[in-house]
């Protein structure tokens, strides 16, 4: 009788130690999922300006983008006029680029996925593998802090075994109202490669949203890319035939 009591006491002890960890992992998982859904919405239409900054050089372009669900998107360059009409379609893990001047569509080979999109600090993978964070990583809560009266969770995301991932580790900062504040990308040696910082949180498209996304490579001071949202509209849905190759060839903006 005594032994049984002891046993159940042990069981209780084990649970009380193990459960919070389990709960925390689930918390982190659902937190990331909720934040991802919050940021992306069911569907969206937006206009943004991308500025690529280099020590001796800077260039801006205006992009119009449509997204649907977790992984489909299509975007076109609107400005400058010289590049107007160049489009990129992203569907699942694949990407295609369209150039109106030669009227051709090119499928991006896997070897090019880690290259910068249009010379920016956002790689093709950053754009194509958006939902990879949800599908391929395990998230754990590492801590939290309070900034301006709001709780900010620090989350460490490690790839699932054998998942086809780009990053060896990601570290996230997510505010309690599901807004991403920062995303750090590490390589397989757990060295910081680049950081995405989300700034200028304000009402946008009917919800609080970071209007400025700043991607900076680690170790270089004066090289970064900033995406600033000018217009953002969340929708319940967009026609699926918008995200097709034939649609890519016929810019509609």
């Amino acid at each position: 009788m005594k032994a049984k009591a002891l046993k159940s006491l042990c069981l209780v002890l084990v649970f009380s130690v193990a459960c919070p960890a389990l709960a925390l992992a689930q918390d982190a998982e659902s937190l990331v999922k909720a934040a991802f859904d919050y940021m992306r919405g069911k569907a969206s239409v937006s206009t943004a300006t991308m500025t690529i900054h280099r020590p001796d050089w800077q260039r801006s372009m205006t992009i119009r983008a449509w997204t649907l669900g977790q992984s489909d998107s299509i975007f076109y360059i609107v400005e400058p006029p010289k590049d107007s009409g160049n489009g990129t379609l992203k569907k699942g893990g694949e990407m295609w680029m369209y150039n109106p001047k030669v009227n051709r569509v090119i499928n991006l080979p896997p070897s090019m996925m880690s290259q910068g999109w249009m010379g920016s600090d956002f790689s093709n993978n950053d754009l194509a593998k958006t939902d990879s964070l949800i599908k391929d990583y395990v998230h754990t809560l590492e801590g939290s802090e309070t900034i301006d009266g709001k709780k900010v969770f620090h989350i460490k995301s490690m790839p699932k075994p054998r998942a086809p991932v780009v990053w060896g580790m990601q570290k996230l900062k997510i505010r309690e109202d599901h807004i991403f504040l920062q995303e750090d990308y590490y390589d397989e040696d757990l060295q910081l490669v680049k950081s995405l910082t989300l700034l200028d949180i304000k009402p946008l498209g009917g919800r609080l949203y970071p209007a400025k996304w700043r991607m900076q490579k680690a170790g270089v001071k004066d090289e970064y890319t900033v995406v600033g949202y000018e217009k953002l509209e969340f929708k319940d849905s967009l026609p699926a035939d918008l995200f097709t190759l034939s649609s890519l060839r016929n810019p509609r903006f």
């Binding site: 690529i52 260039r59 360059i77 590049d83 150039n99 001047k101 030669v102 051709r104 249009m118």
Partner: peptide
């Protein structure tokens, strides 16, 4: 062959 790259001024270079 379709060539798609980036020009010296950062613009998109495309040619067939």
């Amino acid at each position: 062959l379709t060539v798609l790259g980036q020009g010296r001024d950062g613009s998109i270079a495309a040619l067939v």
